[in-house]
Amino acid sequence: MTRPLYRLVYYSRNRIAGAPGDVAQTVQGILRASQRNNFEVGVTGALLFNAGIFAQVLEGRQDSISATFERIQRDPRHGDVHVLGFEQTSAPSFPNWSMAYLGRSREAENLFGSIAADSGFRPDSLESERIFRIMREIALEEESAAA
């Protein structure tokens, strides 16, 4: 019997300060590190970000999710973490790791657009589309709040 799969959805405020170029570099670093760490513990999911927020879906075994979430919680580069959902799921909505820049700012689009293109963000189920939609709305709201 396989152990149950869990899905965690949260968003948090981006606390990275600095010029857009520095922010882009820091975000690149975060993305690379999280991709590597998550792959090692068998966690997949999706990460949306812009100048205002990070919004992330994590899917995996309970202990991997706990450990990943705990590591994320200790990261000072974000704050005000809001968990939108934490529940068991029968199948992963994001079986491949995805991430995307999501914002309206043209300047940021130029900086972050390539990250999204590289990762090929693709919600590929109904559930993932629903989550994606919610996260997208939050991301856009928070971007204007941060501006």
Binding site: Y6, S66, Q73, R74, F86
Partner: peptide
């Protein structure tokens, strides 16, 4: 205050 006030996942409980 910030860090300890962030949510926890413990034994499958948020």
């Amino acid at each position: 205050v910030d860090l300890l006030g962030r949510s926890y996942i413990v034994d499958g409980n948020l």
